[in-house]
Each structure stands twice: as structure tokens, then as C-alpha cells.
Design a protein around this nucleic acid. Structure first.
Lengths: 335, 335
DNA sequence: GTTATCGATGATTTCGATTACATCGGAGCG
DNA sequence: CGCTCCGATGTAATCGAAATCATCGATAAC
């Protein structure tokens, strides 16, 4: 592959001029610019990325770590990230951490090695090396959290108001007339789950139904939905409505309901969370809390670009709007 | 961030020695090695990636382009890619092309700029610049195709036998007793669709049902499934079984069936393709052709690594096993 | 007419690591 | 005792582009 030297020689100019043709074309005379471009085309020259990166200390890459890429919720968020990043001239380095700390640390090291200009993490943990980095550099550290929000991490973030969203979902069930409500949470270590649980508890209390509330702890997967919703359904005083903290778990719950010969929504109402693309094609169509997935992706990139461009020096924790989407998996309890 | 010079000075050795501690530790005396490692820890040194990359001309990155990351089929394949890549010390640069040629070309340019050592593309198109590259360098070009297989591209690939898989799916419907079968394909520009269609046609002919076969062209999306399956169902002489070239379209078809007050499988049997994670949680559970998604990801990485390590000099087109998974969306036609 | 100014371009250093080659002291051998 | 060889380490060239500073001719200003 041709280098900038080859082009310079071929065009009869210096390497500085060739470089300028790319990075500051207005500084070079049109005639020389053309000479250079001819040479570029003739030799099929492409600037070597590593060399450029070494000199400028920039990679034009954003590392995005995600707990599970095969989860449609995350893949939609990533789509938004990818889109916004590309529009700003950045490309996306993908890290699927599979919820494993080891992998999170591998990617953290990659970031420390400066293989990316910024890091977006969609999980709830920040490896120690990065926490140190944040402690040292403060809010100028190019690390942003998406979907989750844990104040202690001291990084900017974009997410919905999980507590309120969950509260609204449960409120809706109570206003439909349900009294015995069950909830299937995600792992409580993540704020995304504990915040939602707080919302659920608060709503139950407001309606004086706290004692009839049943909680089961899942892990966001379909299978855990089948299992945990199943346990709720098998308890005496079966709930007439179940709220799952993810649409995937709601899919599992639907399966559990069917396995027991029950019907949704006639016997059990069901509410999910996320509004993944498939939610409206389930049968019955799933009532769920919509998260603005691509928008979260865009926002998180915007926050990161602000830091990278030094346009901001304070933390920003952006709350994006959610929406309860009522479909046909919810109904008043049958008499 | 500390550089190798800082470490060398701090440890009282030369930069060469520091470098060797990382890349060939057995060449340096244990006592010096310890001295160096102490300095490394003291200064928090991490080798600068761009510098290393410039010197070695390697990036340890694989660029993966995919038509749509939010598609669960692709995201599972990517998961396999990511896993195999990470195990081999490579990381994944993700490119979501959204089926757009412009984006495919952007990523092609990125590859030419040597931002990645290899390219895996999961679509069916290869941008011109890359085709030229393949023509020039032959089978040693580090470009591999996944999921699709187009002989003319002259790149190695990993995929299933789409023609046979589709034929088997349709055969199964015929042996159940169906005579009027409909198929919803993807865009015929991609081999993945045309191969499957060939399989469908061949099976129909073998069973003497070619004239009763109905074809509708979709685009793999749920919405196109609703639309195209709907059209098939509205024709006179409604098919009693529909084969969709993706599970997502099958989800759409299920919706179309319900919209018309029909039942699956009693009135219409349904077969999908891919066996995405959600297929078995639909109602009825979806009969479908399973593709070994993660395995395709692994295989495609293996092929690429073989090229990168110069272990191979011939094209390899690997056919992986598929499997018809019979669930409850298919049944004999009702009398 | 001399000098300050400016636009266009060139010469050269720099980024941070890798690596071929050089060096040096000690062991082994005749 | 002198020479070779080898293991351990140092010296310095190198990768390819960016950016600083220097240069040069021409124009403008006084």
C-alpha cells in the first residue's frame, strides 16, 4: 500500500502538502491540490490509520460494552449508538461482556490502552481501573453510562426514570381493579432493577396493596420469566396481574400462564418492560413500558462527544421519556 | 499516561528491554523482569496501541459488517464472532450497514485504511474496492463471508445449505398432506433467498405441486411477513401452509392469520427459518429451520484467522448443518 | 526603495513502540 | 591463554502521518 511519501514523490511535492490536502485543503493551491489528488488516485493511497492515530492521539473509535448483544433491547440501543457515532465520524468497537466481570475488565484494559477515545457502557458495573480513572480525571473522563444510572459512579448517563415508569405500570394495574399483583424483577444488584422495584413498592403502598404484592427475582431472560412467573402463579392467592421487568421475561410469563391452562388477559394480566420490536406481535399483544431505545443510544453518544470536544465540564444525567403502551395483555380482573 | 521511555528510565534499563518483558519475557533475566514490572505498576504503564500497531502493521481487530444488528438472527451470529475473536486475542469492530450500500462502502474504506486486520461481512454484497482487492490478492485476502454464499465473490464463507434446508421444510409440509403451499421469500437479490426459493421450487416439483405453489416476496421483516402472508391468505384457493424465509416474517404471518380469524395450525400451518430465541416461545410454538448461528460466527472467525496466520491459501466454503425443528405451528391440513 | 506581511510550500521533528544489529562479559574449549 | 559462542542488554533505525517552524517570492505599506 502506498504511503504519503510515495504520493509526495509522485506528485512532486512534500509530504506536508499531501497531508494538508486531506486535513486542511483550503491551505493548498487548487492546482497543487489536483496534482496531489491525481497521484493519490494513481497510487490508490489511503492514509494509514495507525500512523495518524499515533500522531494525533485519537482513534475515532468508541468502545461500547453491553451485557448481552443478543438481547433485542440492547441491540436497538446499540443501533442508535452506531448511527450517532457514524454521523460524527466515529466507529463502534463492540464488547459483549455476557454479564461477566472478567470480560468487562478485558475491555476496560483495552480502553486504557487507548484503543478507543471514549467508552459507553450499558451495564451497571464499572471496573476498578476505570473507576480510578474517573476519580483522577473527574467529569472530563470520556466514559458514559447508558440505560442504567448509579449516582456513585460519577459518570454522565442517559436513561429513563425507571422508578416512575415501574410505578406507573403498577398503578395502571391497580386502576384496572387488580388487587393481587406480582412482579418479576431482574437481578437486584443493578439499579435498573432496584429502582423499578422501589417504584413498584411505592405504588403498592399508595394503593394499600403492599401486603398483597408478591415479588420474584429473575434475570431478564425468557427462561427466568417462565420460572419466576410460574412460581408466582403457583402460590396460594394467585396474582391476577404480573409485571415483568423485561419483555423477554413477559414472554416467559406468557408461556407459564399457558402451561397452567390459564388465559391472558382473562385470568392473568401481563405487563412487560422495554417494548422490544416483538412485543406487539405476541399473542396477546403485550402491554409494556416503552423505553426510547435508539434515543438512549443517540443521547449517550452526544454526552460522550461533548466530553471529547471539551464542551462540558460537569456531569450530566439525562432522563429520557418513557411511555406505558397499553395493548391487549391487560384487562380488568374477571369477577 | 506513562510511555515505554518513562518505564525504561524508572527501571534503569533500555526501552528494548521493557518491550521484551511484554513480548518475549523469556529473553530477559528474572531479576530485570521484576525491576521492569515494578516500574510498570508504579507508573501505571499500558503500551500505546497506535504505536504498536504502526510498528507491527497489525491492529488485532476484526471488522464485522451486518445488515441489521437489531435482528436476533444476526445478533446471535455476532455473538459467536465476538466470542471466537476475543478468544484469539482480537476485538470486534461493528458495522451496521442497514442494508445500505453507502454504509457498506464507508466500512470498506475503513478496512482499506487498515483499521482492521480482517473483514467479515454477513450481507451478500461486496463493495467494489474490496472486490478489486480480492481480485488482486486472491484467496489470501482477509475477507470472509458469513451466512451467505455467492460463488462469484471468490471469498471463503461459512453458511448452511440453504437450498436443501428450504426443500426439507417444504417436503415436510407435503408429507403432512398439504397440497397448497405458500412461501414468503426475502429479497431475491441475495443468494440466501434465491437458494431457498430454488429448494422450494424443486420440492414442489418433486411432489407435483408446482402449480399450486404461491410465492410472495418479503424483506425478512415482521411487517413484510404480515403483508405478504396476508396476500397469500387472501388469494382464492388459500394455502393451507406457509413457509417464511425468516422467523420474523413468520411472526408477521401469525399475525396475518389471526387478523383473518384463522387459526394456526388448524387452518394454516406455518414454518419459519433461523430458529431465533423467540421462536419456541411464540404461540403456537414455531416450527422452523434451525441455523447454527453461533457456530457460523465461530467458523467464520476460524476461516479468517487461517488467512491471517497464512495457514491456508485456498478458498474454503464451509457448509454447516441445519435442522428442521418441528414444533406446534404445523399439523396435517384439516379435512 | 526598504521592510513588514502573507500565502504557499518545504524541511524536520515528533508521536511510542518494535526490532535488527551491536556490545559486553563470562563460560567453554583447544 | 586466546578465541569463539552465547546470553543479556543497549543503541538506533523504523513504521507513516501530523504539525511546527522555516523559507521564499510577491505584494502592500510607508
Amino acid at each position: 500500500m502506498a504511503t504519503i511519501q510515495d504520493v509526495a514523490r509522485d506528485a512532486g511535492v512534500s509530504t506536508a502538502t499531501v497531508s494538508r490536502v486531506f486535513s486542511a485543503p483550503e491551505l493548498v493551491l487548487e492546482t497543487t491540490r489536483n496534482k496531489v489528488m491525481e497521484a493519490v488516485n494513481r497510487l490508490g493511497y489511503e492514509p494509514n490509520f495507525a500512523a495518524k492515530s499515533l500522531r494525533t492521539l485519537r482513534t475515532e473509535k468508541i468502545l461500547v460494552t453491553v451485557p448481552d448483544i443478543s438481547n433485542p433491547f440492547f441491540s436497538q440501543v446499540i443501533r442508535g449508538v452506531e448511527e450517532a457515532a457514524l454521523a460524527a465520524g466515529y466507529s463502534v468497537l463492540l464488547g459483549d461482556t455476557r454479564h461477566e466481570e472478567t470480560r468487562e475488565e478485558q475491555y476496560a484494559a483495552m480502553f486504557r490502552r487507548k484503543e478507543a477515545d471514549g467508552l459507553i457502557f450499558l451495564g451497571h458495573r464499572l471496573p476498578d481501573v476505570l473507576a480510578e480513572m474517573v476519580a483522577a480525571k473527574g467529569p472530563r473522563t470520556p466514559i458514559v453510562n447508558g440505560c442504567e444510572f448509579r449516582p456513585g459512579l460519577a459518570v454522565s448517563s442517559a436513561h429513563i426514570d425507571n422508578e416512575r415508569a415501574a410505578a406507573e405500570a403498577v398503578e395502571y394495574l391497580y386502576t384496572l381493579g387488580h388487587t393481587r399483583v406480582g412482579a418479576v424483577t431482574g437481578p437486584l444488584a443493578s439499579p435498573i432493577s432496584s429502582d423499578r422495584l422501589n417504584g413498584v413498592l411505592a405504588a403498592a403502598q399508595r394503593h394499600g396493596r403492599a401486603s398483597a404484592l408478591r415479588i420474584a427475582i429473575g434475570d431478564f431472560s425468557i427462561e427466568s420469566g417462565v420460572r419466576q412467573a410460574g412460581e408466582l402463579l403457583d402460590e396460594p392467592g394467585r396474582p391476577t396481574a404480573i409485571f415483568c421487568f423485561s419483555d423477554e421475561m413477559a414472554m416467559g410469563a406468557l408461556e407459564a400462564i399457558r402451561q397452567r391452562g390459564l388465559r391472558c388477559p382473562e385470568d392473568v394480566s401481563l405487563v412487560g418492560f422495554d417494548d422490544i420490536r416483538f412485543a406487539q406481535y405476541l399473542h396477546p399483544q403485550l402491554t409494556t413500558v416503552r423505553q426510547p431505545k435508539e434515543q438512549i443510544g443517540h443521547e449517550v453518544v452526544r454526552l460522550l462527544l461533548d466530553i471529547l470536544a471539551d464542551r462540558t465540564s460537569t456531569l450530566q444525567n439525562v432522563t429520557l421519556p418513557h411511555q406505558l403502551v397499553v395493548r391487549s395483555s391487560t384487562a380488568p380482573p374477571s369477577a
